[in-house]
């Protein structure tokens, strides 16, 4: 009974249900893969490809996840957490822009140091996002990004992009497996199962 009435755990369980679909994994994989392909092909158009994950995430949630799990409006507690997350991401974006500006203005840090700095930064950002979203797999993906940044710094191209390609492929496979499992676990409800109650 105590476990059933642990409301914090219940709320977290409900929240995490909406991460069982694999779309966040596919989103992160798309970022990794387009980053790698962009570097390997030296095609700047692939930079835009980094944003293809966003419509996949949005459309996937709208047309696959929600029709299977139902609509829910989370409480103020969860919404406040999201606001803190957005603020953290905002600060991270500003810090990244600042960092890149420094480099473009001629700050000539050794490649390994700047790679290490970037690795720590990425691990921290993903860690914070994972914390606010209470989505543990993001910690691992953050470590992947960070590890890749270090490898890229140590070995340069083409090792760096190939490592990203491998990581991205692994994450994509994980995402697709999770998605397939989710679709099998939560089939679309039949009309007679849940008639429109008016």
């Amino acid at each position: 009974m105590n476990k059933e009435l642990d409301l914090k755990e219940l709320e977290k369980k409900v929240w995490l249900t909406y991460f069982q679909d694999g779309f966040w994994d596919i989103f992160i994989a798309s970022m990794m893969l387009t980053m790698a392909i962009r570097t390997l092909t030296d095609n700047v158009w692939f930079t835009l490809g980094m944003f293809t994950g966003v419509p996949i995430l949005v459309i996937g949630k709208k047309f696959i996840t929600i029709p299977r799990l139902g609509h829910v409006k989370f409480s103020q507690f969860r919404m406040k957490r999201q606001i803190r997350l957005m603020a953290t991401i905002g600060i991270a974006v500003c810090a990244t822009v600042g960092f890149l500006l420094l480099i473009s203005m001629g700050w000539d840090a050794p490649k390994v140091i700047s790679s290490l700095g970037m690795a720590v930064f990425l691990a921290l950002i993903f860690g914070l996002i994972a914390y606010f979203l209470e989505f543990p797999r993001l910690f691992i993906y953050g470590l992947m990004f960070a590890t890749n940044e270090i490898i890229w710094g140590l070995f340069g191209e083409p090792t760096g992009p190939y490592v990203v390609l491998i990581f991205g492929s692994a994450v994509l496979v994980i995402g697709l497996i999770i998605l397939a499992s989710f679709i099998r676990k939560y089939p679309l409800p039949k009309e007679e199962e849940i008639p429109n109650v008016l």
């Binding site: 059933e4 409900v14 299977r68 139902g70 609509h71 829910v72 409006k73 409480s75 939560y186 849940i194």
Partner: peptide
Amino acid sequence: RLMIIAHLYVVESADFLFLMRQTGLTF
């Protein structure tokens, strides 16, 4: 009913399908 109320307590609002999925009850 305890499951239904507990689930509704931790969210602002939800639809039938959400409760069906979370509680395992039939419609």
